[in-house]
């Protein structure tokens, strides 16, 4: 789990650097600071369980097992990328590992993954579907419509709200009348659980319980993970950030990777300083390799631009 969390962080640090350098286009939304949520949730899932992501999607991809090379190649707009260079950062998907895509529309994925949950129920093979979304999305219609349907039909769903307290530069405290997004579960007659989203063990435990409930046919669970993004909404240098410095500083001290490392190092024989350094070096090399892969890959040929508008 630590390795995956650090992989997300190192991958995104590099993506940010290369974006600012102009090698990656459009925009990049970093997940840094929220890694315990994606990894804690996905480590409680099977390969054929499905997830859907948000505009801040790299962490979910990596946590579900996506290939770094194909991810970086997609960011670089190359034909070897997950979407052949047609999607970019906001649209990475890998259906083979049950990653139904990042999504540029806040709340846009919630109903889509609920449809995967319906498919799982009709299929009856015990698959579970998990929706990642933020505090902002919990104010949008698709969240409410989807939770209602999933609850009414007892779909095998887990709804994971990553409450990072801010929708771009609008504080959740100004847009929600409830303290916890999880409280909204009561309106749909399903369990609503608040966990410390920077505590990977707490996230994993809550997800494990919710997944068991879903597989047993007892319906959906809403898990709210309180977390924080360390960085601004996007990596664009001019991206404003109105969050109070004191709040940012306080959350930096609750960094989920530091906490896990401290925890492991406090336990005799779990993780030595040298082991941690070696792991990080390996991860940095993997990220470097992904950049090399991307740079060595061709851009898509302009004559492929109309491919894939329709499936055969």
């Amino acid at each position: 789990m630590l390795r995956l969390m650090q992989t997300i962080r190192r991958f995104e640090e590099r993506a940010s650097t290369d974006y600012v350098a102009g090698d990656i286009y459009g925009t990049v939304h970093c997940y840094i600071g929220e890694e315990a949520v994606a990894v804690g949730v996905c480590s409680a899932l099977n390969r054929d369980d499905q997830i859907i992501s948000t505009h801040r999607g790299h962490g979910h991809c990596i946590a579900k097992g996506a290939d770094l090379n194909r991810m970086m190649a997609e960011l670089y707009g190359r034909e070897t990328g997950y979407c052949k260079g047609k999607g970019g950062s906001m649209h990475i998907a890998d259906f083979d590992i049950g990653m139904l895509g990042a999504n540029g529309i806040v709340a846009g994925g919630i109903s889509i993954i609920t449809g995967a949950g319906l498919a799982a129920q009709i299929e009856g093979k015990g698959r579970v579907a998990v929706s990642f979304f933020g505090d902002g999305a919990s104010c949008a219609g698709p969240f409410h419509e989807s939770l209602n349907i999933a609850a009414a039909w007892k779909l095998p769903m887990v709804y994971v709200c990553e409450n990072n307290l801010w929708a771009v530069n609008t504080a959740a405290s100004t847009t929600l009348a409830v303290q916890d997004v999880a409280a909204r579960a009561a309106g749909y007659g399903i369990p609503g659980i608040v966990v410390d989203g920077n505590d990977i063990f707490a996230v994993h435990a809550a997800t494990t319980e919710a997944v068991a409930r879903a597989r047993a046919g007892d319906g959906p669970t809403l898990i709210e993970c309180k977390t924080y993004r360390h960085r601004r909404h996007t990596e664009r240098p001019s991206q404003p950030d109105v969050r109070p410095q004191a709040e940012i500083d306080a959350w930096m001290k609750k960094d989920p990777i530091d906490r896990l490392v401290d925890h492991l190092q406090a336990q005799q024989g779990q993780l030595s300083v040298e082991e941690w350094q070696a792991m990080d070096a390996e991860i940095l090399q993997q990220v470097e390799d992904s950049v090399s892969f991307a740079k060595a890959s061709a851009f898509p040929s302009p004559d492929r631009v109309t491919d894939d508008v329709f499936a055969a």
């Binding site: 499905q50 109903s111 889509i112 449809g115 995967a116 319906l118 498919a119 299929e123 419509e145 349907i149």
Partner: peptide, 27 residues
């Protein structure tokens, strides 16, 4: 199971079709 009367939530139904289709179904 295969023919469902749904809540009045066309937005969700329309999106659910996409997720189900991407999961091997023909909604």
């Amino acid at each position: 199971s295969r023919v469902r009367g749904t809540p009045i939530a066309e937005g969700a139904l329309t999106g659910m079709a996409i997720g189900a289709a991407g999961s091997g179904f023909r909604p």
